[in-house]
Design a protein around this nucleic acid. Structure first.
Lengths: 275, 275
DNA sequence: TGAATAGTGTCTGTGAGACAATATTAT
DNA sequence: ATAATATTGTCTCACAGACACTATTCA
């Protein structure tokens, strides 16, 4: 059949002739939590953390999962992600970035479901009491070597663990294929999503200012350094850290006192730096 | 209704209750083309190029489009991308990387179609005669400033042009929202896909070795530098370039003679470098 | 011989790694 | 006074930018 115009063609178009599938979005909501500290002199320990939801329906009933949901037929994917953020964690207007789209035909046992993952960053102190009742913050510990990534998640009650095998995809990059080799408690392919997200954040924190999306308005350089250290999983040298961070921050005239040591100056993010 | 087990739940599950949509994949096949040169002394000019297909059906009949196609209901997205690569350009076993998933509800006038874009890199000389009859290589020129990206595509017969407006998404990163403000000849939202892909490649060529996926086995450092320059859109200083590239390449005992100047040594990619 | 590319030498400035030293507070 | 963090000083080394210089070929 020959059409004379685009309008004519579209009028007759029958979408049902193509395979149809479903699209979901899964969101990695990352933040930094404060631990407790008995020694009045010492700083509070900080933890890198992610928000998980306990499923109460099949499939994967009673497993933990990333906040997420189906994308509506007339809904933009990122809008769906923002809707989930609002529904599950009462969060609006925060940093949100698309990461990767997972399309293994067997990733959902129900039917063919594609999932686009997003990463969101927040200052957790802004919303501690507002999250949905079946949501929980898990502190993240990562052990990584050449071949495996071990991730430990702890919310004070449950400890989840999964292990991922890395295989270098090609010699010209450092891209890896991830495979889940151990996973007891997480639903779907979420261990892959979490591991990839952590890796992305670790990488991106080094060459952007996204860390400030996880900070309160005023913070000390010590606190900021703690956040870097806990996300990167390694200690940094003070002078080097301060040199790098100097351009990105502005000193204020406020100080924080009360620890048994020299008070520290409070800084703000410098959003007018020249890069 | 209460289910006692996951198996029981899945047996009864009805996928039709959820919104269904279609998924396509669009592939940016990038390569470098050789120009011609009348002056026997001078090097061949090189061009950064992308493969486009002329559509002969609605919608967007007679417009140019990225190679792509629908993802089958039981097909992994990346497998679909590889299938398209093979069908349209007879290409197998090349560098392929997922870039971004486009989900604007209005991006396809027929129905709701999500598209996941991939970037593929090849040494064009390996396959010049095998591409499909309605495919064509377009040389790319990019003019970019703070607010706009102008892209010019030229295949020797047609010249396509589009213009994109950039808006900074947030102060903490250099992520931009792209909007098409001019586009005569390209189908769908492909100007966005192309612009984002070029930007990604420019960025990634600086900190990985992906450029070698576009090179023949043996090459001179001058040729390699040309490729960097044409992709980055700027000239590089010889000594600095050679310092950086030294770790990534291995000198061979072959030389290339014939230009009216000093012969140049042929190099290979060093895939055993320590990074 | 001269135009053109190939390839090297070297100076300078920037910035990260490393470690030492000083400052300040609450108990 | 002491433990703990806050903050700065400085030495060294690696490396990128810049520019000058030498090497080699073929019409």
């Amino acid at each position: 059949m020959e059409y004379k115009s685009e309008e004519e063609f579209l009028k007759d178009y029958d979408p049902s002739q193509y395979d149809r599938l479903s699209l979901t979005t899964d969101i990695l909501i990352f933040s930094v939590s404060n631990g407790t500290q008995e020694n009045y002199r010492k700083l509070n320990e900080k933890f890198f953390s992610v928000l998980l939801i306990k499923r109460n329906t099949y499939p994967f009933k009673d497993k933990w999962t990333l906040p997420g949901g189906f994308v509506g037929i007339d809904e933009d994917i990122e809008d769906a992600a923002r809707r989930v953020l609002y529904d599950e964690a009462n969060i609006k207007d925060i940093y949100l970035e698309q990461l990767y789209t997972y399309g293994d035909p067997k990733r959902d046992p129900r039917m063919r479901v594609i999932s686009t993952s997003y990463m969101a960053l927040i200052d957790k102190n802004r919303l501690n009491d507002k999250i949905s009742p079946n949501a929980s913050w898990f502190n993240i510990k990562v052990l990584e070597d050449e071949k495996y990534i071990d991730v430990f998640l702890d919310n004070g009650t449950d400890t989840l663990k999964f292990k991922i095998k890395k295989t270098l995809k090609e010699k010209t990059t450092d891209r890896y294929k991830y495979e889940i080799v151990e996973n007891d408690s997480l639903a779907f392919d979420h261990p892959l999503v979490i591991a990839a997200g952590i890796s992305r954040l670790k990488n991106k924190i080094e060459y952007t200012d996204i860390v400030f999306n996880m900070m309160p308005e005023y913070f000390t350089l010590g606190e900021l350094q703690q956040v870097y250290e806990v996300i990167l999983g390694k200690e940094l040298l003070d002078p080097a850290f301060r040199r790098i961070i100097a351009k990105k921050t502005v000193k204020t005239d406020k100080v924080r006192t009360g620890g048994g040591h020299r008070p520290s100056v409070l800084f703000k993010y410098n959003d007018k730096q020249k890069k």
